[in-house]
């Protein structure tokens, strides 16, 4: 039977304990994919069983950047592009924390791109969830570094003509130890990837292709959020272990999804301890890495 939530003694939505209910309803448009990813993140946290007092979430600015402000965790809504440096400081000062960066494509790979590449290179032990709606959503749908060629954006009225970044390839080449891509259609796989990425020591990166019906879908006459979800369902192919070089997304083309990279590499703090111990021997007291059992 269908029950109205207003009735007494009804169970609450499993995502609600993770939300700041006083801030609901959220600002996201009908059919926006960001909310769906939040459900998955909440379930990933539930099944991981982490002490939620030890989970921190950091966002930059944008529609996706709102996630930190909506989650009922220790959350930080930083300035545009600076989620990763903030998260880096947070993690290095408090290695026992699970630090998750949750932000948009523009925030993470345009203005924040330099931080992304260096955090991956240094293997900072954080998880980055990048919701890729292929443009700057919050500010009105401007072209960005993830906008596919020929797609219309408010600042690309004749279609984008710059080469976009292939996000998994970027993260992989810079040294990320876990790299996956899913779409907002792949809710179970995304949930699992979030759990795996948080459990993985080192820099993990998950791209989630998601609809922005208000700006991307509408300007490109691609219908609404549901049409985008149907497109993801029809045109996604799972290729775990695929070479990230080969996973570009063309405008409305096939989308390769899956776990592409899962490798071992010392984290920044492990490498630091190793080097200092090598040089200084017993004069050096290893710094906690958060990975001691």
């Amino acid at each position: 039977m269908t029950t109205q939530v207003a009735e007494a003694n009804t169970p609450i939505n499993p995502v609600e304990p993770f939300l700041r209910m006083d801030r609901m309803p959220h600002i996201w448009c009908p059919g926006c994919g960001i909310g769906t990813t939040v459900n998955c993140f909440a379930r990933a946290l539930t099944s991981s069983g982490y002490d939620l007092d030890k989970v921190a979430i950091v966002s930059g600015i944008g529609c996706t950047g709102r996630v930190a402000g909506y989650l009922n965790l220790d959350s930080f809504h930083t300035t545009h592009g600076r989620a990763i440096p903030f998260a880096t400081g947070l993690k290095l000062a408090n290695p026992e924390l699970k630090v998750v960066v949750y932000s948009g494509d523009g925030d993470l790979i345009a203005i924040g791109g330099n931080h992304l590449i260096h955090a991956a290179r240094r293997n900072i032990d954080i998880t980055v969830v990048c919701v890729n709606n292929m443009l700057y959503g919050m500010t009105g749908g401007q072209v960005g570094p993830a906008t596919p060629n020929t797609a219309i954006a408010s600042t690309a009225p004749y279609g984008a003509f710059e080469q976009p970044f292939n996000l998994p390839f970027l993260a992989d080449s810079c040294g990320a130890v876990y790299v996956a891509r899913w779409t907002s259609y792949h809710v179970r796989q995304m949930t699992r990837a979030m759990r795996e990425a948080m459990a993985k020591p080192g820099f993990s990166f998950i791209e989630i292709v998601a609809p922005c019906p208000t700006l991307y879908q509408r300007r490109n006459r691609l219908g609404d959020g549901l049409d985008a979800m149907k497109y993801y369902k029809q045109r996604s192919t799972r290729k775990d272990g695929a070479s990230t070089r080969d996973v570009d997304i063309d405008f409305q083309g096939d989308i390769v999804v899956g776990k592409f990279i899962d490798r071992e590499r010392p984290t920044f703090l492990q490498a630091m301890n190793h080097r200092f111990t090598e040089r200084l021997g017993s004069r050096y007291t290893p710094y906690p890495t958060g990975l001691e059992d």
Partner: peptide, 8 residues
Amino acid sequence: CGLYCPDF
């Protein structure tokens, strides 16, 4: 359905 719903 619960996992998909963007509006909780």
